[in-house]
Design a protein around this nucleic acid. Sequence first.
RNA 1: GGGCCCAUAGCUUAGUUUGGCUGGAGCACCCGGCUGAUAACCGGGAGGUCGUCGGUUCAAAUCCGACUGGGCCCA
Length: 987
Amino acid sequence: MADAPEVGAPSSRSVQDRVLAYWERTGVPAEALTQARGERLFRFTEGPPTANGAPHLGHLVGRTLKDVELRYHRMRGERLVSPMAGWDCHGLPVELEIEKRLGVKSKKEIEAYGVERFCDLCRASTLEVASVWREMSRRLGYWLDYDRAYRTMDAPYMESVWWSLKTLFDRGLLEKGHYVLPYCPRCETPLSSHEVAQGYRETTDPSVTVRFPLVGSEGPPRDLLVWTTTPWTLPANLLVAARADVEYSVVRAEHGREAVLASAAVPRYFPAGTEVVERRLGRTLEGLTYGPPFETPGPGPGRFRVVLDDFVTTADGTGFVHVAPSFGPDDQRIGAREQVGVFDPLDSRGVFTDVVPLVRGKSFKVADAILLQDLAARDLVVRSDTVRHTYPHCWRCGTPLLYRAIDSWFVRTSRATERLVRHNATVHWVPAHLREGRFGNFLTEAKDWALSRNRYWGTPLPIWGCPQGHFTCVGSFDELSERLGAPLPDPFDPHRVTVDRLEIACGTCGARARREPYTIDAWYDSGSAPFAQFHYPFEPGPFDPAAPLDFIAEGLDQTRGWFYSLLVIATLLFDRPAYRTCEVNGMVLDPEARKMSKSKGNVVEPMSLLERFGADPVRWAFLAVDFTEPMRMSEGIIQKTAARTLGTLGNVVAFHQENARADRLPAAFDEPHPTAALDRWILSRLEATRSLVDAGLDDADLRRAAAAVRGFVDDLSTWYLRRSRPRFWSEPPSPDRTDAHATLSYALLGLATTLAPLLPFTAEWIHQEVGELGFRERDRSVHLGAWPTRLAPRDEDLERAMDEVRALVEVGRELRQRAEVKSRIPLAELVLFGPASPALTALGPEGEALLADELNVKRVRRAAASDRAGHADAQWVVREEGGTPIAALPRTPTPELQEEGLAREVGRRLQQTRKELGLRYSERVAVTVGATGALRAALERRRADLAHDLLADPLEVVEGPLAGEGGVRSWDVDGLTFSARIVRRER
RNA sequence: GGGCCCAUAGCUUAGUUUGGCUGGAGCACCCGGCUGAUAACCGGGAGGUCGUCGGUUCAAAUCCGACUGGGCCCA
């Protein structure tokens, strides 16, 4: 076909590439980001990804969800604040990457290398992956401002963070303490609880039960049995805890000794029938003293005795818990209460110091075996085993963590629990259960936030301490300069390399103060993004301390991460929630529902999907499933999900374009006012769909919106278009043909607008293709248009009536099947029993015409429901429901109708041949048909109709099969044979 | 050990908030049809102990309890 219209499926890569090229050449995304039709702001902050990590499929889901909502609100005329992309630049992830590159393994080596050079490398490495993220967002159609992205390592950003820290400090919410924290001995820094949460792993640890001999008891020697999975903490043992209300037994053990343990634990350690010497409650054991497992220097008063505490359980172990106050939160609490001091034999790398000569210079994990051996040699080990359990590891470097008491700065979140809970109660969580569920629970248990890190690449804690023990928190660069009594270097880099050198005047006593040598948790950086990205309060900007963000969306893993730090910071600084709506997506799994991991080799890279399919099929796949739950995803799944709706939609557009172009008809941008019920119906369905998508997006229920679109595309293709096809080529062109064309193009354009937030590429393609009869790239982008508040009149009665017609079609088809009469053979009539429903009556004769046409019957006749007898089973197939007749069809066609059907079948085969010969629909041909007997007679009688349908002039019918040469083809239809030759006519 | 979530046909799912018509739909499968969209379209069929057990109720996929399996989080 020489002038065949160029039509592409919207799901194809090439079409999407073309849309992308159009956007970029005409600057559509930039215009969309800055365009402001209304006054209302839509507050949003992009959750900043770690600046040296590659994107994964979870990011693709999150960005799809964000993009849909952002587009919708933009089209509604709201101004997006802020459209900035963002980068989380600080912290361990970046430092570790550099350590790996340098091949260094400890802080000592970093310091030997030079902290300044090290930080320079960190800074340089942060945006190496930026281009991948940017390309992914570009391909996905996720429009953010990447040119003005906020970066947590930029001086203005950091100054805002300092401002916030000083605000907390002034309110007494930022304090130094000495508490037990999870600690990475390799990174030599404490971690926050949300970092710990990311690193649980299965490990095998020793599981040992050790005897602690009691001192000064009468009678046979007695031992407390103590169970631990961390033998390396035994040298730091200062107390043993029992529980007051638990019953303990003294049992006869080997070698004339007696053992004390919880009665519930006796069966785990002693065979049945072991003699119980005595039973007593835990509270009676208080104050007993014992010999420690290892001699350690300077035992202070009150050490090595039994104390009572409710944290002891008997679910496993012996009912006695060894207490090493420097190595556990409960231990520390008990140690403080009992005033026994602390004893920490480890250095900052987790290596034993000289105070324990036996394991001097050994790492704590290595020490386990040596210490155990020594205990065994002294016959103190009752049982030695191993246990498999989950144990926290450093989320970045994989080293097993230890819990230890350490100096650290804390944000006193525990003092704001009530406010955190209250603010969280106002958040629209998607899914809703997070509010009271996982996130809510976490809030009520909120512990103080261990903010400081003993590291290099991060926002320095802006606190200086003087020899008198006063602390001064600096809240701006000007303040720093003032306290310094000198101008700051220009440009000023507020990282450690600079500020570590600065000594300021103490704000309390004026003495020289040195900076506390910490950086802060990078999660605090990112949680400050809503204000720090605008350099609040130092520069004017759209940030409003009273206004929460309207919308954020990230993955479930942010529950303890960003969602938490945002809320804590907003609550402590501004006493308000951080966000109104928080949309949370589950994780993406492989097709077998397994986690994607490099070790399993089942990782799907986001870019590979975008490269293979383009954005919309991928977006559609995510919108079609429940994104709040774990979702399975693969190329195959995307193909299947996308093919249906996008493929069908592509077919509809292709059909429209073929006919519209053949007719050179202009597209209808204005609302048409067609008379045909079919047209009014699809317009009503269009409006219904628009309103459903509107409600779904307004409610952050994307799946509902996507389902509405799916339903409409189905109706458009499988009913409207199927029923309308002949209308598009009625000859001569009629007003009805014009109406059909106008309605279809308007419906497609309306759909494009409705679809724009969900499938931006497809929407643009339809908008351009249909609007201009060809992708002209000169029309205004659909994404710069307004969200429609009304597309067409809604007529729910008409929709109901059409549903009835379609239901009756199903009944009719079933009857044809039972009568074994193919659809191509016309039947005289369809009988419908009983009166028509009000809806159907309102539809008028058009409803019956649709029925008759679709079912290929000559007419529809109404019969009284009592007239069942008039339609005997010998002549009729009847559908009944509950004994009432519904509809009936004649069992056999009349000979005349039989003949009509036969002619129609011949015509169809010849049309097919025309098409195979590459003839255009308007091209005239000469046709010779060869047939015999009844078939020939039938064709002769219908020669005029056939000639008309086939644009054949002349059309000759001759006797017998044609000679099998020169383009002659033959067919066999229901046992009758015929042959034909079709020749293109010269013009 | 604790918390949250999920469980409907081989797959994706509607329905569960507010209990009530034979639990709908799409893909795949089987049979048939259609043919100026054609890697489409239409009809029919088969396929479901609504994870299991118990309770409430005239009535339970839906409400309650226990359990099983899976996921995530925490200890």
